[in-house]
Design a protein around this nucleic acid. Structure first.
Lengths: 331, 331
DNA sequence: TTGAAAGCGCTACCAA
DNA sequence: TTGGTAGCGCTTTCAA
C-alpha cells in the first residue's frame, strides 16, 4: 500500500480511501491510484484491515458439519454458501466425524481465526464450553441437534414425528415384526428416532421387540452386516426401519444380497440422491435439507447483523415419501 | 494479551512466548500466564500474529470446487481436509458452478484473505490471470482440469483413456448404435471424453453417429429428457454412454421410465454412491477420488512447504467397473 | 479533498 | 530467562 501511494504520488490514507470505495476522493486521484494498484499488482490485506477496524469483521463464518462428504452435510454447506456468497462472506468448512474432541479443537481453531459466526452440527453431548462465547456475542446456530447447556439458535427436525410416521406406515401395511436399525444412541437425533418409533408402535398397540433392535451402527457396511444377521434368525422381521441414510443404504444392500428386496419392507430416515431409482424405490422420511440450510443461514446472518432477541428454535417436520419399498406387505 | 500480561505480572513478550509454546520460559511463569489466560478467556488472534510474522502464514487454504454438494467435489474436499487437519490448516470452500466470473471473484476474495495456497477445479477456460500470483510464489494446484495459460501443478484423470475403455467395452458386447450424452463441450474434461469415445469407436472401425450425440447437458433432468427423446426416435440406440455422473443418473431415470433398464446398455463416467445397488448395477468408468484428493493435498502442501521444482502433472488412469448395466447385449 | 500520526494485537530483534 | 521497542498493513482521528 505504501508503494502504491508512492507510485501514485498520494498519501497512504488516500489509497485506503480508494481501495475501500470511500466517498470524498476526486476522480483524478482515484484514477491515478487505481492505475498504480494495477501496475504493482497490489492486493488489499483483509486481515490487517480487520485488525485496525474496531468491528473485527472477518467476513468469514465457520461451518462444523458431521462430514462434508456426506450428502446431508454438503447440501447444508451449499445452502449456507449461497447465502454467504451474496454478502461476500467466506466459509471455513470442517468435518467432526462425531468426535467430541475434534469439535472442541476445531471450534478453538475457528475462534482464533475470529470468524464472524459459527454453524455447528454438534458431536458433543453438551456445549457448556460455549457459554462464555455466546455471552460475548458470538453468533452461533445449531443445526440438526439442539444445543445442550448453552442458549443458542437451532434448526432441527422433528425426529419423533418422523419416526412415528414411519411406524404408523409400516403397521398400516400389516407388519408386526419390524426391525429397527439405528446409529449411536448417544446421538440426540438417533435416540429421538428410536423413541419416536416406539411411541408410534405403541399408538398402534404394539411394542418393539428388543431382539429386532440394533443400534450403535456407524457405517453402511455395519448396517448391512447387522441386517443380514437379523434376517438369518428363526423368525425374521417382515419390515425394517433404518433410522439414518447410511444405515438405509446398508439395509438396501443386505436385502439385495439376500434376494429379499421385494419381500421385506424398508423405510429409511433422510432422503438421498437416487433413493427413487432403486428397485423398489426407497420409501423415506424426508427432511427438507434445502429448507434447513436456508433457515440456518437466515438465523446466522441475522445474529451477525446484530439481532439480540432470545434464541429461536426452528423445528421442521419431516414428511413420508412413498416410493415402493415401504409398501411391501408381510409375506 | 495486554490484560493477560498485567494480570500475570509479566511482559507482553512473555505471554507471547507462552501462547506460542516457545522454549525458554520457566514453568512457574508459564503456569501464571496460563492461569491468567483462562481467567480472562483470552484467545490468541491469529490474524494479528500473521500480520507481524514475516512469513505471512494464515494456515488457511482455499478450495474452489465445482459444487461442494456434489459427490466428486465433496469427496475431494474431504480428502484435502484430512491432510490439512493434521497441520492445523483450515479450508475455505466455495462452489464455482462452472461460472468463470464466479471463479475470478472468488480467487480475488481468497487472495485478499491471504490463503497459503489454492486448490482449483477451474470454471474458466484459461487462467492467465493467475500468472503473476504463481510467479509471486502462490502455491496453486489444479484438479480435474489442467491449467491453461499458467504453469502450475495438476492432478487430472485420463479422460481419453476412460472414454476409450467405455467404447471398447460397449462394442465388445456387440453394440453398434451407441448414444453419447455429455456436458458442455467447452469443459475440457467433457471434450476429452467425447473425443476419447470417438477414438475408442474408431479403433473398432466404427464411427459415432452424430444423431446419437447430445452434449451441453447440465443436469440430471436435462439428461433424462435428452435420452427419452433419443430413445423415441425411429432407430433408437442399443447402448448409451453417459459422460458424467449427473448425466448417468438422468439416463438411469430415462431407462427406468421407459422400461428399458434391462434392454439398453448403459455405461457412466465417474462413480457415485449407490451405483452398485441400482438394478442392474451401473457399469462405470471410475476415477479414484480419494487418490486424487490425496495427490492434490500432497502437491499443495509440498508447495506451501517451499517446493519450487517445476510443475508436476499427475494423471490418474480410471478403470472400468463392471456391474451389469454395461453388459446388456443389443436386443 | 487530502494528509500526518497514532495504534489495532501481535512478534522480531536486541538488550538486560 | 525475561523485557523493551519497533513495526507488520491497515484505518482512525483530527488537522490542513
Amino acid at each position: 500500500m505504501r508503494d502504491v501511494a508512492a507510485l501514485a504520488g498520494v498519501s497512504l490514507k488516500t489509497v485506503s480511501r480508494v481501495v475501500n470505495n470511500e466517498a470524498g476522493v476526486s476522480p483524478v486521484v482515484t484514477a491515478k491510484v487505481e492505475r498504480a494498484v494495477l501496475q504493482l499488482g497490489y492486493r488489499h490485506n483483509l486481515a490487517a484491515s480487520n485488525l485496525r477496524r474496531g468491528d473485527a469483521r472477518t467476513s468469514t463464518v465457520g461451518a462444523l458439519l458431521q462430514d462434508v462428504s456426506n450428502s446431508f452435510s454438503s447440501s447444508l454447506l451449499r445452502a449456507l454458501e449461497d447465502a454467504a456468497h451474496q454478502r461476500d462472506v467466506a466459509i471455513l468448512a470442517s468435518s467432526l466425524d462425531e468426535e467430541p474432541s475434534r469439535e472442541r479443537t476445531l471450534v478453538e481453531s475457528l475462534l482464533r481465526r475470529r470468524v464472524d459466526g459459527l454453524l455447528i452440527m454438534p458431536a458433543t453431548e453438551r456445549q457448556d464450553y460455549l457459554v462464555d462465547e455466546v455471552r460475548g456475542g458470538l453468533p452461533l446456530v445449531f443445526v440438526d441437534r439442539r444445543p445442550q447447556g448453552v442458549d443458542a439458535d437451532s434448526v432441527t427436525v422433528d425426529n419423533i414425528s418422523g419416526a412415528r410416521q414411519a411406524a404408523h406406515h409400516l403397521v398400516g401395511q400389516g407388519h408386526s415384526r419390524i426391525a429397527f436399525l439405528g446409529d449411536l444412541t448417544a446421538i440426540q437425533t438417533a435416540a429421538e428416532r428410536l423413541s419416536g418409533f416406539e411411541s408410534g408402535l405403541a399408538e398402534r398397540d404394539m411394542v418393539l421387540d428388543p431382539r429386532l433392535v440394533v443400534t450403535e451402527i456407524r457405517s453402511d457396511a455395519e448396517a448391512m452386516a447387522a441386517l443380514l444377521e437379523v434376517l438369518a434368525r428363526p423368525s425374521p422381521p417382515t419390515a425394517v426401519f433404518a433410522a439414518r441414510n447410511t444405515v438405509a443404504i446398508g439395509a438396501v444392500r443386505a436385502l439385495r444380497h439376500s434376494g429379499l428386496s421385494s419381500k421385506v419392507a424398508l423405510v429409511g430416515f433422510d432422503d438421498f440422491p437416487l433413493a427413487d431409482v432403486l428397485e423398489p424405490g426407497l420409501t423415506v422420511v424426508r427432511q427438507d435439507v434445502r429448507r434447513i440450510g436456508e433457515e440456518v443461514a437466515r438465523l446466522l446472518f441475522a445474529r451477525i447483523d446484530g439481532d439480540v432477541s432470545p434464541p429461536h428454535h426452528i423445528v421442521i417436520t419431516p414428511e413420508l415419501v412413498v416410493r415402493g419399498s415401504g409398501e411391501i406387505r408381510p409375506q
